[in-house]
């Protein structure tokens, strides 16, 4: 999945991250609206919307007749439920790729790249026992604190900075960070591989032997857009929605 997205997002890697994220959000919005068009019953939605429009008009026309208004209102409520039912299938179909894309973007655009002036903290959860050998000098990056062992547990934590975007402890099998290029996955932890990890937590690598999982706290990033500070998710949500609306108009999608 990661390799597929690396390929799909390659055209955006030369862009500034904020522009890359905005373009990907725009394409995602258009893609989602097209998937919606394909997977929804457009004719039924169109008919239903006309019907709902006529019921609303009828309510305005028969304001002097409360029983008629009530009947039309009841019909409108029923139509709304039918409308939601029509939306359910395409929304369910869209949700999975949407979450996968969002997870990939989270892995690529939500954190600052590791650097000397960006200290981060990692916690290693060992499977059975803490190994006797101590953390030595990392192959890449710098250990900037002693390693803290949490009493009565199998947790060890340390703070570090990266060099060239990565922090590497070959002896422990720890590798965090990314190549540093815009839009590449920034690994910020590890866990045992599985479908959930592969699809929804692409920021986690495969746990090295003896390690249950690794968590790290790497500083989040904010994007300056229109004078405001936006999280990656706000950029994604707003721009994908805007382009989905635009796509609905251009491609005549009944929503």
């Amino acid at each position: 999945m990661n390799a597929l997205f690396d390929l799909l997002l390659k055209p955006f890697q030369s862009l500034n991250p904020v522009w890359g994220l905005m373009w990907i959000s725009a394409l995602t919005g258009i893609l989602m609206i097209l998937v919606f068009k394909k997977t929804s019953n457009q004719q039924a939605i169109s008919r239903l919307r006309k019907k709902m429009g006529s019921r609303a008009l009828g309510m305005l026309l028969f304001l002097e007749s409360p029983p008629t208004v009530l009947k039309l209102a009841f019909g409108l409520i029923t139509d709304n439920f039918i409308y939601l039912w029509h939306l359910l299938k395409p929304m369910l179909i869209i949700t999975i790729p949407f979450v996968i894309i969002a997870s990939q973007l989270d892995a690529r655009y939500s954190r600052k790249h590791l650097s000397a002036d960006n200290p981060s903290t990692a916690t290693v959860f060992w499977e059975n026992s803490i190994p006797a050998e101590e953390f030595g000098k990392p192959e890449a990056g710098i250990l900037i604190s002693p390693v803290v062992t949490i009493a009565d547990s199998l947790e060890q934590s340390f703070s570090f900075t990266g060099s060239n975007g990565v922090f590497v402890y070959d002896a422990m099998g720890i590798r965090l960070g990314s190549s540093g290029s815009s839009g590449s996955i920034l690994v910020r932890g590890a866990e045992k591989s599985g479908i959930i990890q592969a699809l929804f937590r692409p920021w986690n690598a495969e746990s090295p032997p003896g390690v249950l999982k690794i968590h790290s706290h790497i500083q989040g990033i904010h994007y300056i857009i229109l004078g405001g500070r936006w999280s990656w998710f706000a950029v994604f949500l707003v721009f994908s929605s805007l382009w989905a609306i635009l796509g609905a108009v251009v491609f005549k999608v009944k929503v």
Binding site: T121, S145, P146, V147, V148, T149, I150, A151, S157
Partner: peptide
């Protein structure tokens, strides 16, 4: 979380 051996806290 204090680790008195490594003289550090998390």
């Amino acid at each position: 979380w204090a680790d008195r051996n490594s003289r550090a806290v998390r």
